[in-house]
Design a protein around this nucleic acid. Structure first.
Length: 857
RNA sequence: GGGCGCUUAGCUCAGCUGGCUAGAGCACUUCGUUUACACCGAAGGGGUCGGGGGUUCGAGUCCCUCAGCGCCCACCA
């Protein structure tokens, strides 16, 4: 078979993936025998195409999976997709808007079904794209976050918490979008700087002794004020504490209270409190047992709790009229331009209204406590470890979790309320029913759904069929959770808390936090700026392996780095190098070669190469165990390119050892397979040295014995070749020079090889040499160069002498330091002495050589 | 305001618990069609490791400090 000169990935990749899939190579091996390794993929959003970040993610998950599979472990990489609750619904709503419809045209059930179909249609790409990335995940275990087992798990967890008193229903301030009609978690609110004004309002004291001036950016909320707060140690207001004010525009009398949260230096130092529409005010109201007046309704208009004049007005409208009325009454002290940050809905940009709403909450204290303990005990290893510390800090300040969302696309909350008693809530899983009858009482289902993160927090064990599943007993806790830093708090923290709560164990043993793939200039990729890099055209042009290696090259955990097309090209070239190494090998060994079980080193080059492979097997394994992908890749790159191709393969052109060459190629293909699965498998299949064998399921290479001394002698060959190349390049006399040596079995033996590698005319033994003496090697060798030409080399010699002088000086300085010889390890001191000796010897040689030149005149 | 991180060659970055004369890729210079590969081969140039101070026999690595950059969280009446 004649292989083309250039490796063309797209000719092979899809066939190779199909071969793996057909061979069931992705399924875990026999259960529980030689250890297990498991990763459950964080489920990407099912309604979107995979972006370049997922190409990185796929690589970071697939590399260790392939490595551990080759180590003989029962290995599982489980794929999934996320319904992405609110995300998907808003994408679908945009689509509806294009058709001139809105979600309010449909019932909750109709909407759910429509979004289901919409997401299902878009999910087609998902499998195709992960296959193109070479992800060796077990598709038979694919899980969607709305699969029955995930929903059931969420219900069981909710029930357990309900029974154990961790779930409560409470009226709390939520971040409410009046357009979408749903509340958001704190982390989902997007803050924007808004240029507005800050107004000062005069509230007259009821006893007529004056006014207290408060500052506000939201004057309309004054209709819901229930107190004014000042700092307890603020001398200006000390006498007013405990008095009341007459709230303008209303007939209400509200107290002046003292609370430490007030910043004396901000505004007037006096704050109006609107507990129903501001988190700080709410907290203060809790402390002081103040009433709460809901002034703004869920539709964004003023409620019936405000004077009738303002009822039903939209917030912006109400603001104008309130300001106008205040001014007329002389209660408006001042207004000044003011820029401050305001929470907005991250989808539609509507200003978020903090609003009182009945929600389901989880009491997080007991859960957080367990998680903090596990993290402090180091039961989960983090890459990098600093993320573990961050998570502990976060958990220590954790608030209760609002798990209700007022949208259709999600898992319905399995709770029903008695139509005759709004306090009477019951747990029931029959969420397909609107109303249920129990003991003659009628209950109506809660219309809310779970926050997506609530169900996905059970992902590590729900996907493995906790508690009865075989997968659960084999693969839990997971070996690794690989994810991005942005979901450390919303997801990773909750998986740990729920994992501990539900299963009693940490959900995973290690966490790898990846950094982001930024745009080439280091800025964030964004569709609107248009600097987004699509991974699939890159695969088309450079190959999936090149994309994978190009992305991990030089990347460390949790560090954001720009996309670099040159690294992709470089990796593509590397694949091509492997391809050509295989072509060469096949040419040498012939098409009929079959796998040899007993390769034996014969030459120095064999011993040297086997030592290199030995070292690389150990080093690559170590790197991969510690998820140091970039370093492993870089090491293998140099093993292949520098050691194997440039030295060993060149050596085989003089002295071929079929068994060793074949062994080395096999070992290299195996070591690189996790990084470049397609090209290595393509080569493996093309060579076909073993029948019906797949590289993906082959075993990690084992080292062969090699003679250390002989391997070191090959280094001497490299030294001589290196010096000859340097000199012949400097003097431009390549291909025309003969190397002479005196009485040396080593050169006798290695002469042909040195001649070939150094591009010499000949290598010959002589009685006494003449010409340019080699100074880098212990062996006595001369290059047969005429005096006139050789003289041009004297300046190089002078430079080398100067360098040797510097070496000797710095070593002398170190060795004459008594503290150094006394305190540094003896090994180091001996090493320094040895180095000094070598430097002095070398200098002598150089000086002698230079003198010869000068004598020769 | 709290937390985390970064600053090493022209560019993008490695450098793990302090120990040879600080590395890689790309870019650059010179040379080269040699039995796989020009997506190649050979040789080479290029760094006061952000500034200052300290600990140490020894600091890119540890500590303090200053400067610049970035991220996350909280707050913004």
């Amino acid at each position: 078979m004649n292989l083309p000169k250039v490796y063309e990935p797209k000719l092979y990749e899809s066939d190779i993936y199909a071969l793996w899939e057909k061979s069931q190579a992705f399924a875990p091996k026999s259960r529980g025998k030689s250890g297990h390794y498991s990763i459950v993929m964080p489920p990407p959003n099912a309604n979107a195409n995979l972006h370049i970040g997922f190409a990185l993610t796929a690589a970071l998950e697939d590399i260790p999976t392939r490595y551990h599979r080759m180590q003989g472990k029962s290995t599982l990489l489980l794929p999934g997709a996320d319904h992405a609750g609110f995300e998907s619904q808003s994408v679908y709503e945009k689509q509806l808007a294009k058709e001139g419809k809105s979600r309010f045209d449909f019932s909750r059930e109709e909407l759910y079904q429509q979004i289901w179909d919409f997401v299902a249609a878009n999910r087609q790409n998902y499998g195709k794209q992960f296959r193109a990335l070479g992800t060796s995940c077990d598709w038979s275990r694919f899980t969607f976050t709305l699969d029955e087992k995930i929903i059931n798990r969420a219900y069981k967890t909710f029930k357990k918490m309900w029974d154990e008193g961790l779930i409560y229903r409470g009226e709390r301030l939520v971040n409410y979008c009046t357009f979408h009609g749903t509340g958001f978690a704190d982390v989902e609110v997007e803050y924007k700087e808004v240029a507005s004004k800050i107004w000062s309002l005069n509230y007259p004291l009821t006893d007529g002794s004056g006014v207290i001036t408060v500052a506000t950016t939201r004057p309309e909320t004054m209709l819901g004020d229930t107190a004014v707060a000042v700092h307890p140690e603020d001398a200006r207001y000390k006498d007013m504490i405990g008095k009341t004010v007459q709230l303008p525009l209303t007939k209400r009398e509200i107290p002046i209270i003292a609370d430490g949260f007030v910043d004396k230096d901000f505004g007037t130092g006096a704050v109006k409190l609107t507990p129903a529409h501001d988190q700080n005010d709410y907290d203060a109201a809790q402390r002081h047992d103040l009433p709460m007046i809901v002034a703004i309704g869920h539709d964004g208009t003023m409620t019936s709790h405000v004077p009738s004049k303002y009822q039903g007005l939209p917030v912006a409208e109400a603001r104008k009229i309130v300001l106008n009325d205040l001014e007329e009454q002389g209660a408006l002290a001042s207004d000044e331009p003011y820029t401050h940050s305001v929470g907005h809905c991250y989808k539609c940009g509507t200003a978020i209204e903090p609003m009182l709403k009945e929600q389901w909450f989880i009491n997080m204290q007991p859960l957080a406590k367990q998680a903090i303990k596990a993290l402090k005990e180091g039961r989960i290893k983090f890459y990098p470890d600093s993320k573990r510390e961050q998570l502990i800090t976060y958990l220590e300040g954790l608030r209760d979790w609002n798990i209700s969302r007022q949208i259709a696309w999600g898992i319905p909350i399995p709770a029903f309320v008695n139509v005759d008693d709004s306090e009477d809530w019951i747990f029931d899983e029959r969420t397909d029913q609107h109303t249920i009858e129990i003991d003659g009482k009628t209950y109506v289902r809660d219309s809310d759904v779970f926050d997506t993160w609530f169900s996905s927090s059970s992902w590590p064990y729900a996907t493995l069929d906790y508690p009865e599943g075989e997968d659960f007993s084999d693969f839990y806790p997971l070996s690794l959770m690989e994810t991005g830093g942005e979901i450390l708090y919303p997801w990773v923290s909750r998986m740990i808390m729920l994992g501990l709560y539900v299963t009693g164990e940490v959900p995973f043993k290690e966490v790898y936090i990846h950094g982001y793939v930024m745009a080439e200039d280091g800025s964030k990729m964004s569709k609107s700026i248009g600097n987004v890099v699509d991974p699939f055209p890159i695969i088309e042009e450079f190959g999936s392996d090149a994309l994978r290696m190009g992305l991990i090259a030089g990347r460390s955990p949790a560090v954001n780095r720009g996309f670099d097309n040159r690294k992709i090209e470089d990796a593509r070239n590397f694949c091509n190098k492997l391809w050509n190494i295989a072509r060469f090998t096949q040419e040498k060994l012939g098409n009929e070669y079959s796998h040899s079980n007993n390769p034996k080193a014969a030459s120095l080059a064999d011993e040297w190469m086997l030592r290199k492979i030995q070292h690389s097997i150990a080093l690559t394994s170590d790197y991969l165990e510690e998820y140091r992908f970039s370093e492993a890749y870089e090491h293998l790159y140099h093993l292949v390119w520098d050691d194997f191709a440039d030295w060993y393969i060149e050596s085989t052109k003089i002295d071929l050892n079929e068994g060793v060459l074949a062994y080395c190629l096999e070992a290299i293909l195996k070591l690189i397979h996790p990084f470049a699965p397609f090209v290595t498998e393509t080569i493996w299949q093309t060579l076909a040295w073993e029948q019906d064998s797949l590289l993906i399921t082959s075993s990690w290479p084992t080292a062969l014995k090699a003679d250390k001394k002989k391997a070191q002698q090959f280094e001497e060959v490299k030294t001589i070749v290196g010096e000859v190349r340097y000199i012949t390049t400097a003097l431009r006399v390549r291909d025309t020079v003969t190397l002479y040596y005196k009485e040396s079995a080593f050169l006798e033996e290695q002469g042909d090889l040195i001649k070939k590698l150094a591009r010499l005319k000949d290598v010959r033994s002589v009685e006494d040499g003449n010409g340019l003496y080699l100074t880098e090697t212990k062996h006595s060798c001369w290059l047969d160069i005429d005096k006139a030409t050789a003289k041009r080399y004297s300046s190089e010699l002078a430079d080398k002498i100067a360098a040797a002088d510097e070496d000797i000086q710095s070593l002398d300085k170190r060795l004459s330091n008594k503290s150094y010889t006394a305190k540094a390890p003896k090994k180091l001191v001996d090493e320094s002495k040895q180095q000094r000796k070598e430097a002095v010897d070398k200098r002598e040689k150089l000086v002698a050589e230079l003198e010869r030149f000068q004598l020769a005149g």
